[in-house]
Amino acid sequence: MKYSKLKTMKTVKLLALLFVANLAFVSCSSDDDGHDDHDHDHEEELITTVIYTLYHGNDIVTLTFQDLDGPGGADGTYDVSGPLAANTTYSGTTALLNETENPAEDITEEVEHEGDEHEFFYVSSLDDITISKLDQDEDGNPVGIETSLTTGDAGTGSLTIILKHEPNKPNNGTPDDAGGSTDVEVTFPITVQ
């Protein structure tokens, strides 16, 4: 079992080479795209705010949900500016905002842009409230950013606004039938008087 010096040298050289190669490799890879601070990593696609604005002449009712620190942290807040009038037709507009950005980012535009992949649903526990969607995506299916809301008799209940991502379109108008995954689901207490 004799080994020539040459072979030992070869081994040592090869080991050294590998080691250096590793070091170079390692140091390169830890320098590339990483290491800047993540302070710019705002929640880019976060939706912090849902505003449903209902107009009937000078009568304006806004339903606002706001959760500025996103999931976790402080709970979201619901704010309804006032009661709806009975047997009245309102025109409604829904806006989605990311208020962690400055100025606030309007997510509604993205939804409108990708209308065929999104749809809003409006469900009320008050049976005689009817809501129809006025806008359409490129395939002629409803999107639901623009709506018309008609109230019936007086009463109190809730109004739920749901935004589905990748729903079945067309569907029978219910969120269950639409499937997809839920991007927004907020429930407001409402009063009709």
Binding site: S30, G34, D37, H38, H40, D41
Partner: peptide, 17 residues
């Protein structure tokens, strides 16, 4: 060991640096 939560995801990293 070093963990690098690569920036640019637009989401707070689930595992930090």
């Amino acid at each position: 060991q070093e963990n690098d939560a690569v920036s640019g995801t637009g989401v707070s990293p689930i595992i930090p640096d």
